[in-house]
């Protein structure tokens, strides 16, 4: 059995005239937690959606050797019409012979794993705060014991303390499941905490990849500028809407 969980070879994707991914190569080994960093509009979400099969690349090859996946969306993407426990157990309820009572029990267990009390189970997502929604989204992602987890900007819109809580939960859940994880973010604090390896995406390509320690020592000017959060350097931010 191969140790490679996700492999992207020469993947390209364009929307009209705008080329988002350009011959992108990325390999993620089994059990590894990789974080893709990069500025807004560099193609991080498109990369993730291509792996998930939500978008089809124009060129290239994507191999996914996992069995089942869990995904935490940027806005949590909870189903408004379902209660919290129904959201968490959504995939569990699809399994043959699963009763609603058993599914609710599993949901409450998963909610406990992300630090939420059983009382939250019967509440609707509209009544939750941003941080609680993220936790419920995480509980839903881990409910079916996935071997691969995806996180799309997991700390966006959260205060620093709640961001740290979510980062801790992500690390704990990934370790407990022994899962492979792919996270996209531009939050460097989050990236340092979650990642075994960090990859930098720029102009549709992975321009650098290494460990957190290597990140601090790299000479790559793009990475150094991004990590420093400086406007001075080779990365020029687009200001026109059509270039974003």
């Amino acid at each position: 059995m191969t140790d490679i969980q996700i492999e992207m070879k020469k993947v390209s994707k364009a929307f009209g005239k705008k080329v988002v991914l350009k011959d992108l190569d990325l390999t993620i080994n089994r059990g590894e937690s990789v974080v893709i960093i990069g500025g807004s509009g560099t193609g991080k979400s498109v990369t993730l959606k291509c792996i998930l099969g939500l978008l089809h690349p124009d060129k290239g090859e994507i191999k996914f050797n996992g069995k089942n996946i869990g995904m935490l969306f940027q806005g949590a993407a909870l189903f408004d019409s379902l209660t919290v426990w129904e959201n968490v157990s959504f995939a569990v309820l699809q399994q043959k012979g699963m009763t609603r009572e058993r599914a609710k029990k599993i949901a409450i267990e998963k909610l406990a794993e992300v630090g939420l009390k059983p009382e939250v189970a019967d509440v609707y997502p509209a009544d939750l705060s941003g941080g609680m929604k993220k936790r419920v989204g995480l509980a839903r992602a881990i409910a079916i014991q996935p071997d691969t987890l995806f996180f799309d900007e997991p700390t966006t819109g959260l205060d620093p303390i709640m961001s740290d809580v979510i980062n801790d939960l992500i690390v704990r859940c990934v370790k407990k499941l022994g899962a492979t994880a792919l996270t996209i973010t531009h939050d460097m604090t989050s990236a340092r905490k979650i990642a075994d390896k960090i990859a930098m995406l720029y102009e549709g390509k992975i321009i650098w990849m290494g460990t957190v320690k290597e990140l601090d020592k790299t000479d790559n000017p793009y990475v150094r500028q991004f990590v420093a959060g400086s406007s001075q350097g080779p990365i020029r931010m687009s200001v026109k809407a059509d270039e974003a």
Binding site: K49, L52, G53, L54, N68, I69, G70, M71, F73, Q74, G75, A77, L78, F79, D80, F90, A91, Q94, R140, F150
Partner: peptide
């Protein structure tokens, strides 16, 4: 609304 809040993508990732 489900489309723009990624709920439809979430359905796909939940094997639905």
């Amino acid at each position: 609304t489900m489309r723009v809040t990624e709920q439809i993508d979430a359905l796909s990732t939940l094997n639905t």
